[in-house]
């Protein structure tokens, strides 16, 4: 049930999910999670806590070491993804934007990149082109359509990577550190875009350590600990005011600095908490 008491379908469910990188290093451990349709869900945690791994598992890119994952009630596994019908069903509904757009962009030009998804879905060329141009207009990258990806700036690459996923019209968007390394203007644009997409019905799952992004999106938050466990799940307001939790998972830290001759010690997050103690 959502806040209005309406039945909302569970989109992604993780049941005791664990993954060990190369069967040696634990990346996520015993995660239970539910992402509901139309939800904005943020996975936050310090570097190396397993955020990216969790997103890749939600996209069926890496197999779980133990536990299970479901998309709209269907189990996502190496076996189920070998079934052509399910692979198509799943991949056209769940889009993944990688942290590093360089690894994601592989077509000769921006336009080819945007057309890749729709053409795979066997959408007519005319409609595919319409989609590509509409997305370029939305992202403000029409002038880049004939450029190869290596001739783009970081922000432009990120926009193209998002656009290349959006042209297939997925229901769920998995975004790995979407605002990382971008200038403030592009960051602001992406936040507005994410809110607009969510308003249009898209389910968003974002992996980030940027607490201001979590605050701006007012997402449901899952906090990963440095031991790769889901420490707490709750609303952005509840999580962001839980200083003890954020300190424990290393998302904020104690910090000493000087104002003239006065030295201060306070909790520091580069976001909300910059409160001086007396």
């Amino acid at each position: 049930m959502d806040l209005r008491g309406e039945e909302v379908e569970k989109m992604i469910v993780l049941d005791s999910a664990s993954y060990k990188y190369q069967d040696i290093i634990s990346a996520i451990s015993n995660i239970n999670l539910e992402v509901r349709e139309g939800e904005r869900f943020a996975i936050i945690g310090a570097n190396g806590s397993g955020k990216t791994t969790l997103l890749q598992i939600m996209n069926g890119l890496i197999p779980l070491s133990s536990g299970r994952i479901f998309f709209r009630g269907h189990e996502v596994s190496t076996k189920s993804l070998k079934e052509k019908g399910f692979m198509r069903f799943f991949r056209e509904r769940v889009g993944y934007v990688f942290q590093d757009p360089d690894v994601q962009l592989f077509c000769p030009t921006v336009l080819d990149e945007l057309l890749y998804g729709p053409l795979q879905l066997e959408i007519s060329k005319e409609e595919a082109l319409d989609r590509a141009f509409e997305i370029m207009k939305m992202l403000g990258i029409e002038n880049l359509k004939d450029r190869p990806s290596y001739m783009l700036s970081g922000g432009e690459k990120k926009k193209v990577a998002i656009g290349s996923v959006l042209t297939t019209n997925p229901e769920v968007l998995l975004l790995d550190e979407p605002t990382n390394g971008l200038d403030p203007k592009t960051q602001c644009f992406l936040v507005e875009l994410m809110l607009a997409l969510n308003e249009a019905g898209k389910t968003l799952v974002i992996a980030t350590h940027d607490l201001s992004l979590v605050d701006e999106l007012q997402a449901t938050v899952g906090v990963l600990s440095e031991e790769h466990r889901m420490e707490k799940t709750g609303s952005a307001i509840d999580i962001l005011k839980d200083e003890e939790l954020l300190l424990r998972v290393n998302l904020i830290h104690e910090h000493i600095h000087r104002h003239g001759d006065m030295a201060h010690r306070h909790i520091h997050s580069h976001y909300l908490f910059h409160r001086h103690e007396k």
């Binding site: 993804l81 052509k84 019908g85 069903f89 989609r131 509409e134 939305m138 229901e171 607009a196 249009a200």
Partner: peptide
């Protein structure tokens, strides 16, 4: 904000299940 969004993104895919099409290579 919805004016921003291309109309095709507002179309929801048909819900439900998928057709079995055999194993992928």
């Amino acid at each position: 904000m919805r004016d921003w969004i291309p109309s095709f993104l507002l179309v929801r895919p048909s819900l439900g299940s998928f057709r079995l099409e055999g194993k992928a290579k």
